[in-house]
């Protein structure tokens, strides 16, 4: 469970997020909408422990993570969260497999559940691409690789920042279907989108405006 209490984030004099309080339970499917520059990316960066709030409390499963050391925060990010970005953010010089295994490489156990990975690859239909360099893939394939990377460590929460923004309708639907299935399996989905049609799957939808979460 993620609980934010009166969280504010500012960059110098610019206050991006103001006094945000929200609770996200395990298994939730949350969508966050808002205009460009509303602070959506800043908000999910904080949710995903990629950034720290300027003030307020962030409780992850009951423990305050705001003042934890970088090593501990990195471990939590590695084990609790998976990220899917609009621009895929894959490392072009590496193969599909190497990209997918990045979270495992930086994890504590460094153990790949081979059976789980195999089923994941089959499910995302990317098994045949495993040894290809990612710069040879299409947009839809890249996003499926990015999803595989996000879930390889079996995180509790997936944070997706406009994951369908660069995809055609077929690939968009395929990606959303994967999110639905993962959510059914108990994974929390936090989806940032401009597309109002994506909110139909959500258990809750929020809008960010003027730094407030509505």
């Amino acid at each position: 469970m993620i609980k934010l209490e009166n969280v504010t984030k500012s960059f110098g004099d610019l206050i991006v997020l103001k006094d945000i309080s929200v609770t996200i339970n395990g298994g939730d499917y949350i969508t966050i909408m808002g205009k460009s520059g509303a602070g959506k990316t800043t908000f999910i960066s904080m949710l995903g422990l990629m950034d720290r709030p300027t003030s307020g409390k962030y409780l992850l499963d009951g423990q305050d993570v705001v003042n934890k050391l970088d090593e501990e925060v990195s471990r939590l990010r590695n084990e609790e969260f998976g990220f899917v970005f609009q621009g895929y953010n894959l490392i072009n010089d590496l193969t599909v497999e190497e990209n997918i295994l990045i979270p495992v490489m930086y994890g504590r156990k460094k153990q790949v559940d081979v059976e789980y990975l195999d089923s994941l690859l089959n499910r995302l239909d990317i098994k045949h691409l495993l040894h290809k360099k990612v710069n040879k893939l299409s947009g839809g394939e890249k996003q499926r690789v990015a999803i595989a990377r996000a879930v390889v460590n079996k995180p509790a929460t997936i944070i997706a920042d406009e994951p369908t923004g660069s995809l055609d309708t077929t690939n968009r639907d395929a990606v959303l279907q994967i999110f639905r299935e993962l959510n059914k399996e108990g994974v929390t989905i936090i989806l940032v989108t401009h597309d109002i049609s994506l909110t139909k799957d959500a258990t809750r939808s929020y809008r960010l405006a003027m730094g407030h979460l509505i």
């Binding site: 990195s74 953010n89 979270p103 930086y106």
Partner: peptide, 16 residues
């Protein structure tokens, strides 16, 4: 920078 960002997002600490 992009690659560093990805690695850090997926758990690489400053020390790593």
């Amino acid at each position: 920078i992009g690659e560093i960002g990805v690695k850090k997002a997926f758990g690489a600490s400053k020390v790593k």
